[in-house]
Design a binder for these strands. Structure first.
Length: 438
RNA sequence: GUGCUUGUAGCUCAAUCGGUUAGAGCGCCGCACUGUGGCUGCGGAGGUUGCGGGUUCGAUCCCCGUCAGGCACCCCA
């Protein structure tokens, strides 16, 4: 009988966990740099928490079951409802804007593919209580800085940004009614893909004229900056007028430019994302080659907290998963080498030296150093080889001849030099050598 | 959940038209090497060819099912 992890679930051997920890550490460093405070919540929640807003169809995607107390429960598929509840409970007492982040493990019951499992970790950053465009810029900048922190440059990824409010204004200018807008949105989302025909017929069924969207699909969609959007838009009177209005997205883009992050940003009106959630800015982060799925997605959801938790506060946030991000880092050679498991290997020349090895090893451990030694008698060469394999920088060799002088040998494994050191200064000696060599 | 595709050692891959005992590199363990390591050489362990069934004298190879991975759809945390 052999067992393996459930489909879509991962084992993390030390090497894998080290990589995950590397990603988490970058997430935390950057989030904290932006003044975000970490929180967490239960991985298991009442099923209602998710069906209340999204309806019963979502159950197909949930990892849900009935517990022994006959409660309908689900592993959390996303953090936002939990976040909404926690914020609602204390919103009155929290200084605005609220900047919170979490690194939850999330679960979805669906068929796995590359970059998409049944379980993953996700950096969730949310900024609550500020409706203005600088809040949007703030969270987008955070997402970009996470990527930079992990060693990725603007040649390797882009944030594509759009805005529901802008799109809405453009649709109106093009004569598309409120009822036709969702179908028009689908057309935008599917443009250039095999499913486009389906979206188009849905739009026609809603009474839309395809010609009305064409200007948006063929012209405006090409624009990747605000100024090119204005250029393209000038060809259409109504659109030009709509673009002349005040638009928060324009200010958000300008703010990112002012931060020096302009190279990472592309305006992209085809970014749609979940229709139910987002009310304003929407954005996705992609690798430049687009060989992978979106690394990160988010936007403004000003109505969601009220509908979920009862506090009527505007909010903007994003989620960034560890799976696609990890794949990208590996592809770009940005997976760091496993850190050394010990600082020092202590080696016995003869079996008679073993008690002295144990004594010295323990003293070094008490001194805060990572120490290993061979657990069975071995040739000295093999013991040094063990030290190499463990990434130790120092070897302490203990043998009868040196012992007779009250000394031990301390060897630098990298440059192969060694010096005799009095036993009673060994710990201090090793500590200073390790500190000096960083 | 639907369609297509792939599955050989821990990893990456071979194996003629369906043919006899399924191989190699890397990794792992041991020896050369009993006061000094990374190299080299030699040796060893490791396989129910994902699993089950069928066709055949004979199946890693052909057929069916199933499980798992990949791609697309659905969905987008």
């Amino acid at each position: 009988m052999t067992f393996r992890a459930l489909p879509g679930f991962r084992d993390f051997a030390p090497e894998d966990l080290a990589f995950r920890t590397h990603i988490f550490a970058a997430w935390r460093r950057v989030a904290v740099r932006y003044g975000f405070a970490e929180y967490d919540g239960p991985p298991l929640e009442p099923l209602d928490l998710y069906t209340a807003k999204s309806g019963d169809e979502i159950v197909g995607q949930l990892y849900n079951f009935t517990d022994k107390g006959d409660r309908e429960v689900s592993l959390r598929p996303e953090m936002t409802p939990t976040f909404a509840r926690m914020v609602a409970e204390r919103a009155n007492g929290l200084k605005k804007p609220i900047r919170w982040f979490a690194i939850p493990q999330l679960f979805r019951y669906e068929r796995q593919q590359r970059g998409r499992l049944r379980e993953h970790f996700q950096l969730n950053c949310d900024l609550v209580g500020e409706p203005g465009p600088l809040a949007d810029a703030e969270v987008i900048a955070l997402a970009i800085d996470v990527m930079r922190e992990l060693g990725l440059a603007h040649e390797q990824f882009r944030v594509r940004v759009s805005d529901r409010r802008l799109l809405d204004a453009l649709f109106t200018a093009l004569g598309i009614t409120a009822e036709q807008k969702p179908a028009a949105m689908q057309m935008l989302d599917k443009f250039g893909r095999s499913e486009y025909a389906k979206a188009e017929s849905a739009f026609i069924e809603a009474g839309g004229r395809v010609a009305s969207v064409e200007f948006l699909l063929k012209e405006l969609r090409q624009a990747t900056t605000w100024s090119t959007l204005l250029e393209h838009g000038a060809k259409h009177e109504g659109v030009a007028a709509a673009l002349a209005e005040e638009h928060p997205l324009r200010e958000t883009l300008a703010a990112l430019e002012a931060m020096g992050l302009g190279d990472y940003i592309e305006l992209d009106l085809s970014i749609v994302r979940g229709l139910a959630y987002y009310t304003g800015t929407v954005f996705e982060l992609f690798d430049v080659e687009r060989s992978l799925r979106a690394i990160c997605g988010g936007g403004r959801y000003d109505a969601l907290l009220a509908s979920l938790g009862g506090v009527d506060l505007p909010a903007v946030g994003f989620g960034m998963g560890d799976v696609v991000l990890g794949e990208l880092l590996k592809e770009r050679g940005l997976r760091p080498d496993a850190p050394p498991s010990v600082d020092v290997i202590v080696a016995a020349v003869t079996p008679d030296d073993m008690p002295f090895v144990l004594e010295a090893a323990h003293a070094l451990r008490d001194g805060g150093l990572g120490v290993e030694y061979a657990l069975a008698p071995q040739a000295l060469g093999k013991q040094l080889k063990l030290g190499d394999a463990r990434g130790a920088r120092l070897a302490v060799v203990i043998g009868p001849d040196d012992r007779a002088q009250g000394a031990v040998m301390v060897k630098h494994l990298a440059d192969k030099t060694q010096t005799a050191v009095p036993r009673d200064t060994l710990v201090a000696h090793c500590r200073s050598l390790l500190t000096l060599n960083g």
